[in-house]
Amino acid sequence: MKILVCVKEVPEVNAPVRADISSGWLLLEDSHYFRMNRFDEFAVEEAIRIKESLPDVTIAVLTVGQARAEKILRRAMGMGADRAIHMLQEPGADTSPFTVASAIAQHPGIGEYDLVLTGVMAEDDMQGQTGPMLAELLGIPCATAVVLVRVFLEERFVSVEREIERGMRDVLELSLPALLTVQSGINVPRYPSLSNMLRANKAAPQVIEVSSLAMPEPRDVVVRGVVPGRSRKGLVLEGTTEKKATELARILVKRGLI
């Protein structure tokens, strides 16, 4: 059985962000602030758990991103993925979900996988679209926000539960090959092991230049990024910790909350 896990590099949530008005986009210059999307860590872990429970499973991990994104491929291999594919983009290239899904769909070996996993969304753009769009481009069934996976390889289907609203779960079966986007909390992602990291450092990822592919025109464009307005007054307390604490205590007393 072959599993593909698609992962993305994202900036740290509290990384300093600078807006570039001319390109209408947000810039982060220091690669130190980039890491694997946390939702994708759950997808990598789930693939490894399937590998540990079934015979003859191999895991490939793939990212579409700039050169520095190689770091997250090595991390995924450190966790236990067998090989890595880097679909290399130039800085400033379009990274919208449709573009990324279109690139992955053109990866030469894409038809070989029984199961494709991604995180439920990326922490930076929070669209949750790349997985479902990729499934559609490949013509395979898809389930999102998956919190339980059971693979029935001989019968060629996967049994899954999706997390939906009000504590409910949607129970379904998908024919293989299928694509699942994995919800956080499905497992506890492991840390990379030293022996796996050493192996990862020796194995170079397969590199495919996205610019060499026949890419479609982007269907949507981010015109600009702005700092959102406040929806409430937002009194900012000033001074020392003790002074802020005293002021907040008085506010709570005044509002009759204590």
Partner: peptide, 17 residues
């Protein structure tokens, strides 16, 4: 308009289709 980067920023997205 939609939130990105953990809600810190708002992206204004236009459609080309």
């Amino acid at each position: 308009a939609r939130r990105i980067l953990g809600g810190k920023w708002e992206a204004h997205v236009a459609s080309n289709t």
